[in-house]
């Protein structure tokens, strides 16, 4: 009995399934995000200390979660490539990196815009901020490494190793606010540390962002499968033409 990952190992089946699922995930993401924005701007209360600037939390926190979740997905996919040789593992890892980098950038940028009115500075070399910046550099490093190698197979393996080495940054980011004395507040826990009137909009925005991420990741994977088919066909075309030109021409007359 095949597992779901084995069933999806076949790129053709993945393209069929994702072609069906993708519009639904994208539609759900759009609907949930619209509802979340309505809650944020029309329902959620202002913070007694931060006032209206707490509204930045509803995009900063989901971006930060996705920045880490995306890297977790890259590391998981890299593990799937190196250990199980799953045909779509590298496709998944390659597709997730630019999207993860974008959300890490958004986490840093919105955090900085939130920090200026609240902390009085756009940036401080705080443990949480610095470790997320390192995560951003890791993403850029993965993209740079991959684009510097022509051979797909070598690029896949080297980026997979780098991704797995870099996964150590995730617990550092997560626990930085506990291990070190940071300006950044502790984690926005999903249980007690935040009032339901703010927690529910935050959860809805996080769900919308997460669905959006998976929709974009699925689309990027589909693009990557097509890209590799195009590359294979081009190689085949070149081989065919070389085969034709290198055949010995019969002696004239």
């Amino acid at each position: 009995m095949q597992t779901i990952t084995q069933k999806l190992a076949n790129p053709t089946r993945f393209m069929q399934l994702s072609g069906i699922v993708l519009p639904w995930i994208a539609g759900a993401a759009a609907a949930i995000l619209c509802y979340g924005l309505f809650l944020v701007f029309a329902v959620a209360p202002i913070d007694y200390q931060q006032g209206e600037t707490v509204k930045i939390m509803y995009i900063h926190v989901p971006s930060a979660w996705l920045a880490m979740m995306a890297y977790g997905l890259v590391a998981l996919s890299s593990f799937g490539l190196l250990v199980f040789r799953h045909p779509l593992a590298d496709v998944s890892a390659k597709a997730a990196v630019p999207i993860g980098a974008a959300f890490t950038f958004l986490a840093l940028f919105t955090g900085s815009l939130w920090g200026k009115p609240m902390w009085g500075t756009y940036w401080v070399w705080d443990a949480r901020l610095t470790s997320v910046l390192i995560l951003f550099f890791l993403y850029l490093g993965l993209m740079a490494l991959r684009s510097s190698l022509d051979d797909e197979s070598t690029a896949a393996k080297l980026t997979a190793v780098l991704a797995l080495v870099g996964v150590a940054i995730l617990p550092i980011i997560k626990f930085s606010v506990d291990w070190w004395n940071t300006l950044h507040q502790p984690s926005t826990g999903l249980t007690s540390t935040i009032d339901p009137s703010m927690r529910i909009p935050l959860l809805i925005m996080a769900l919308g962002f997460t669905l959006l991420f998976f929709a974009m990741h699925m689309k990027a994977m589909r693009n990557e499968v097509l890209r590799r088919r195009v590359k294979a066909l081009r190689l085949s075309d070149i081989a065919r033409r070389d085969g034709r030109t290198s055949q010995p021409t019969p002696a004239a007359g």
């Binding site: 790129p11 490539l81 040789r85 799953h86 045909p87 779509l88 593992a89 590298d90 496709v91 797909e152 197979s153 690029a155 896949a156 393996k157 499968v225 590799r228 088919r229 590359k231 294979a232």
Partner: peptide
Amino acid sequence: ADDNHAAGSL
């Protein structure tokens, strides 16, 4: 081929 299959051609 197994490398190609693992990462390259699809």
